[in-house]
Write a protein that binds this DNA or RNA. Structure first.
Length: 479
RNA sequence: CGGCGUGUGGCUCAGCUUGGUAGAGCGCUACGUUCGGGACGUAGAGGUCGCAGGUUCAAAUCCUGUCACGCCGACCA
């Protein structure tokens, strides 16, 4: 009992204090550390390995659609940033400025990129002359800086890692198709790899990206019922092209503006993984994103043959394609179990003298803690099955949680009451007027998360003002 | 940017009210016993008390200033 008590003391229960639980999990899973600069985190090996897996998966999917990777500078001259009016107004409050080079003050100060639309536009203006130069479908992996007031590991840091895709097309149709295509890449990635179900939809004008004609988004629901914008894809129309003079000569020898898109996903997704799948014992990683899928834990490892057997199992499983490690530290088995659970390693294999005698091992699932005794002869087959089942179950569990925390509201009183009393998404009709969005935010702090592509007509009138409704909206309190 | 709060061995913190030789637990090192849900014994190492001034015979403690970080709000991926 005393030992069990110690276990629960390590990580604050998510029911007691979700924010503290999150911080505890990040710390106990050894994902990040704080640094001497507020809001700038060390991403430790366990955290960075997750990001590397996200990168590999996304990058492969991008390239299948024809994306090419490039790298642009981290500095943007002030004059360049100011060329598109809405864009600069949107980002100005949170940019960091470089004012000196060595001891000398710069003629023109440089902004540390908060996003790179302006740099890509400047580049494209030089690069694109003819319709033969189109489309440009570029992406870069980099970090960006936004001087946030309030910071949290992964969810809101002043510097964060991401990818930003920037494309230029001959026609509006092509740009629109690319915008939607990339949103779907993100949505599939979230569901298939991260086991996070998403709502695909369009942002309202109030919530859309600064300078965009339309912003599409995938929204996911965290375990505490707050929404997280998980990936966005923007259609810029020819707005940036006009501001930056990006023109090409068409086949008919007329001068045309290009149509552009941009789309991004960030290290914030690591925060989403934590908040969707984690439990009171720590992190739970979906098998397809886990840097280590299997931890082999020898029991009574000082006894003859135990460690050798553990290494043999590791070797066999590595050959079979699993990501596997052996915890051969001199900690007690109980300690190793807790470590494996806090770090979210999807399964552990317990192997001790009794198992070796019986030619078996014990597989333990991280998400359900189910213990499965399996013969060493078909360990690899069973492991494949367990990991596949776990990946599937995690998505379905998250989907069930989201659906159970999605409500419909038909009048304003019901809407406000639901938002305030039931954490989750509230679906309600909206007239399209920003005044209603503002009123909702004023009354509840909730925002319009998106207008889903899959529309349903819950009623004919706006839940807020009663005027004729234009769209069904997912509302919620967001990170 | 507002409201809290915190800075003392690697970590978590006590000590500060009432000034007087810097403490505990965990971790770390060595050796031994343990090992199926955070084991134990013995012996060790380790700190200019965030920083700068000031008061005082004497400051972790009192005063002034300053910096940093955390949490909660408003803004945002």
């Amino acid at each position: 009992m005393a030992k069990e008590k110690k276990l629960v003391e390590e990580i604050t229960s998510m029911d007691v204090d979700f924010a503290q639980w999150y911080t505890d999990v990040v710390k106990k899973a050894e994902l990040t550390d704080y640094t001497s600069v507020k809001g700038c985190m060390v991403i430790k090996p366990a955290g960075y390995a997750i990001w590397e897996n996200i990168q590999h998966e996304l990058d492969r999917r991008f390239k299948e659609t024809g994306v090419e990777n490039v790298y642009l500078p981290m500095f943007i001259p002030e004059g360049l940033l100011q060329k598109e009016k809405d864009h600069v107004e949107g980002f100005a409050p949170e940019v960091a400025w470089v004012t000196h080079g060595g001891m000398e003050q710069l003629q023109e100060r440089l902004c540390v990129r908060p996003t790179s639309e302006t740099l890509f536009c400047d580049f494209y203006a030089k690069e694109i002359q003819s319709y033969r130069d189109l489309p440009k479908v570029y992406n870069q992996w980099c970090s960006v800086v936004r001087w946030e007031k309030t910071t949290r590991p992964f969810l809101r840091s002043r510097e964060f890692l991401w990818q930003e895709g920037h494309t230029a097309h001959a026609t509006a149709e092509e740009a629109e198709a690319r915008t939607q295509q990339m949103l779907n890449v993100y949505a599939d990635f979230c569901e298939e790899v991260l086991a996070i179900p998403v709502i695909r939809g369009r942002k309202t004008d109030k919530e859309k990206f600064a300078g965009a004609e339309a912003t599409y988004t995938i929204e996911s629901l965290m375990h505490d019922g707050k929404a997280l914008q998980s990936g966005t894809s923007h259609n810029f129309g020819d707005g940036f092209a006009r501001a930056f003079g990006i023109q090409y000569t068409a086949k008919d020898n007329t001068l045309q503006y290009v149509h552009q898109t941009s789309w991004g996903m960030t290290t914030r997704m690591i925060g989403a993984i934590i908040m969707v799948h984690g439990d009171n014992s720590g992190l739970v990683l979906p098998p397809r994103i886990a840097p280590v899928q299997v931890m082999v834990i020898p029991i009574a490892q000082h006894k003859e043959g135990v460690l050798d057997k553990a290494y043999a199992i590791k070797s066999d499983l590595l050959k079979a394609g699993f990501k596997v490690k052996v915890d051969d530290s001199d900690k007690s088995p109980g300690w190793k179990f807790s470590e494996q659970e806090m770090k979210g390693i999807p399964v552990r294999i317990e192997i001790g003298p009794k198992d070796i005698e019986a030619n078996q091992a014990v597989i333990v699932r991280r998400d359900t803690r189910e213990k499965i005794v399996v013969s060493l002869d078909n360990l690899s087959e069973k492991l494949t099955e367990v990991l596949d089942t776990m990946q599937h179950d995690m998505l379905e569990r998250a989907r069930a949680h989201r659906d159970a925390h999605t409500y419909d509201a038909l009048n304003y009183e019901e809407f406000v009451k639901t938002i305030n009393e039931k954490p989750g998404f509230v679906r309600a009709m909206w007239c399209g007027d920003q005044a209603c969005e503002d009123k909702v935010k004023e009354d509840t702090t909730a925002t319009a998360r998106c207008m889903p592509f899959k529309q349903e007509k819950l009623s004919d009138v706006c839940v807020c003002c009663g005027k004729p409704a234009k769209a069904m909206v997912y509302w919620g309190k967001a990170y």
